Amino acid sequence: MNERNAFSLAGIPVVLILIAGWLLTGWWLVTTLATPSEAGPAQIIPIGLVFALLGFLSKGFFQVQPNQGQVAQLFGRYAGTVRDAGLRWTNPFYAKRPISLRVRNFESGKLKVNDSDGNPIEIAAIVVWQVVDTAEAVFCVDDYENFVQIQSESALRQMAQSYPYDAHDDGKPSLRSHGDVINSHLANEIQQRLGKAGVKVTEARISHLAYAQEIAQAMLQRQQAGAIIAARTRIVEGAVSMVEMALGELGKRGVVDLDNERRAAMVSNLLVVLCGERGTQPVVNTGTLYTG
C-alpha cells in the first residue's frame, strides 16, 4: 500500500459558499414564515432539509499543519492523504487521522551485547527519522513509533555483534576507531527494517560505548599495558636512532676510535640514559679508556 493524494478543496472558498447558502436558506425561512397561508409542513420541511445538508457539509472542514499529513478513510478504506497546509474541505464521510511528517529523533536505551570478539559491551545510539509514506506508516504496521524504536534497537544489537570493540592489527574496522563506517552500517541496518513502515532514517550515531562493568577494569589494564608498550616502542626506536647517529658522527669526524668492546659499552650507556624513566647520575672517568 502506497500513499496517494486524497480529494480536497481549499477551505476558504467553500466557507464563503456555505455562508451564502446559510443566508439564502435563512431568507427563505423568513419569507415563508412571513406568509402564514404558505407556512405549512410542505414548505417548512424542505427548508429544514437544506439546513441539515448545510450542517452536514460543514463537517468536511479540517486543518492541515505544516509538515503534517491527514490520512483519509472512507468507511474503513484508504482514500488518500492530504498534505496541503491550511484550511481544507473534503468529503464529510471521510475519517481523518493526522500524521506528523517532521524530523524526529530518539536515543535508545543502553544495550548490553557481545562484540565480535565475545566481549560484553554497553552501547546506545541516537536515531534521526521521519515518515515519508503515511499510508505505510498507518496501515502496514500497528504502531509505527513503537515499531521504529524496537527495530532500531534490534539493528543496533545486530550491528554491534559484527565488529570488535577495539581495532586489531588486521585493519578491520572497530566500534571505537571507525565512527563513520559504524554509523553508516547502523543507518543501513535500521533503514532495511523500517522501509516497510514508510519511515526514512536520516542519521544514526553511536551515543554511548563502553565495556560492561564486569570486564571494564581488566580491559582498562589491557589498554594501559598496550599504551605503555606503544610508548616504550617509540622511545626505543628514537634511542636507537640517536645512538646510531652519535656513533656515526664520532666516526665521521674522527673524534675517537672505539673498538667493539668500548662501542658496545657506549651503546649500552646511551640506551640507559635515553630510555630510563628517571634522570641518570653521570660517572666521570679520570683514567684511560680501558681503566675505570
Score class of each variant (00 low, 15 high):
residue 168 H to A: 02
residue 233 T to C: 04
residue 49 L to M: 10
residue 225 A to F: 01
residue 282 P to S: 10
residue 58 S to W: 08
residue 229 I to L: 11
residue 155 A to S: 11
residue 173 P to C: 03
residue 152 S to K: 01
residue 247 L to M: 11
residue 23 L to A: 15
residue 81 T to Q: 03
residue 278 R to W: 01
residue 168 H to E: 04
residue 64 V to F: 13
residue 81 T to H: 03
residue 276 G to M: 00
residue 152 S to V: 08
residue 153 E to M: 15
residue 159 M to E: 15
residue 253 R to Y: 13
residue 250 L to H: 06
residue 85 A to W: 15
residue 171 G to A: 04
residue 201 V to W: 04
residue 267 V to H: 10
residue 256 V to Y: 04
residue 261 E to N: 14
residue 177 S to N: 15
residue 27 W to A: 08
residue 287 G to A: 05
residue 63 Q to Y: 14
residue 162 S to C: 10
residue 201 V to F: 09
residue 257 D to I: 07
residue 43 Q to M: 11
residue 121 I to E: 12
residue 61 F to C: 09
residue 94 Y to L: 02
residue 137 A to G: 08
residue 194 L to I: 11
residue 191 Q to G: 08
residue 74 L to C: 07
residue 186 L to G: 02
residue 203 E to K: 00
residue 122 E to Q: 13
residue 126 I to P: 02
residue 78 Y to A: 04
residue 157 R to L: 11
residue 260 N to E: 12
residue 88 R to C: 00
residue 106 F to W: 02
residue 135 A to S: 10
residue 205 R to T: 13
residue 252 K to Y: 07
residue 227 A to L: 12
residue 1 M to R: 03
residue 241 S to V: 06
residue 230 A to P: 02
residue 230 A to Q: 12
residue 100 S to P: 11
residue 29 L to G: 00
residue 93 F to R: 02
residue 115 D to N: 09
residue 227 A to S: 00
residue 262 R to P: 12
residue 219 M to E: 01
residue 248 G to W: 06
residue 1 M to G: 05
residue 139 F to Y: 13
residue 250 L to V: 11
residue 135 A to M: 00
